[in-house]
């Protein structure tokens, strides 16, 4: 009986728990609060969008969740375990792609598999499959400098796919692309990452683009300006695929905008 109830609890417990996280810097006697007491949870198959004004510490929050940075208060748990450094289950996609300019597309994706205990050939197959999934077949030997912004972000996505994390963090993933490319990639990206066979079980995306969050997310976490606090956790109950021109879509964006200001 006891084991069974513990299992039941494990299923219910969220994949990611952020509890009472705060971050502050000491700046010449002054204390600068960046994040103040932020808590939220993320369950399997959930897409969380975090919206906040520019410079509100969104990126810092993501870095804390990823284990890259220690919070000054509170803790982050992944599958119930408190994390102190990067863990296998979490990976991040960056605004500026973070590709190594001296490695070609294939080598960049292979880098993600470097520390997996896999035979050389399997790694290669996985990397090639990921590159094919993001529609970059034929560009394996190209260097990042030869690719457009959209293609670079595709490589970033391929790297995440190959790594197969359970939680994917995204820091403004579409904001350094031109609007048309961004629109395109958003749609494609959603069907790719949230598909049934995808290993990715939950996504946290940070953005200052409200429309983008309403288009993609199941929940939007609205944060205040510095120091960041949770203003509201908005559940976005729109059916998918979402129509950006519908009345409901406008209502959601309006509501989030008014929460932001």
């Amino acid at each position: 009986m006891q084991t069974l109830s513990r299992d039941a609890a494990a299923v219910k417990s969220p994949l990611l728990e952020v509890s009472r996280v705060s971050l502050s810097y000491e700046l010449e006697k002054e204390k600068l609060d960046v994040i103040s007491d932020v808590s939220f949870g993320l369950c399997k198959d959930e897409f969380l969008g975090i919206v906040a004004p520019s410079g509100a510490g969104k990126s810092s929050l993501l870095r804390i969740i990823s284990g890259l940075q220690r919070p000054t208060g509170g803790e982050v748990r992944v599958k119930g375990k408190v994390i102190h450094s990067p863990v296998d289950e979490v990976f991040m996609i960056f605004q500026n792609f973070a590709l190594l300019p001296w490695k070609n597309v294939l080598e960049n994706v292979l880098l993600a598999l470097l520390c997996k205990d896999l035979p050389e050939e399997v790694r290669r197959q996985k990397a090639l499959k990921a590159i094919e999934d993001v529609n970059l077949k034929g560009f394996e030997k190209a260097y990042p400098g030869e690719l457009s912004g959209g293609m670079k972000q595709r490589v970033g996505i391929a790297r995440a796919l190959a790594l197969e994390p359970q939680i994917l963090l995204m820091d403004e993933p579409f904001s350094s692309l031109d609007p048309l490319t961004a629109d395109h990639l958003r749609v494609e990206f959603y069907s790719l990452l949230i598909s049934q066979e995808s290993p990715i079980q939950a996504v946290v995306m940070v953005s200052h683009n409200v429309e983008e969050v309403v288009e993609l997310a199941d929940r939007a976490l609205v944060l205040s300006d510095r120091p960041s606090r949770v203003v509201q956790d908005v559940k976005i109950g729109l059916p998918r695929p979402r129509n950006k021109k519908s009345q409901e879509f406008y209502e959601y964006t309006d509501r989030i905008y008014s929460l932001l200001t």
Partner: peptide, 25 residues
């Protein structure tokens, strides 16, 4: 760029690989 350092840390490439794939190039 800090994003590249972060990526290498998230990928946990290890010290030697960090030198070989990131710092030296």
């Amino acid at each position: 760029p800090s994003e590249i350092r972060d990526t290498a840390r998230l990928l946990k490439v290890g010290r030697w690989n960090f030198w070989r794939h990131v710092y030296i190039p």
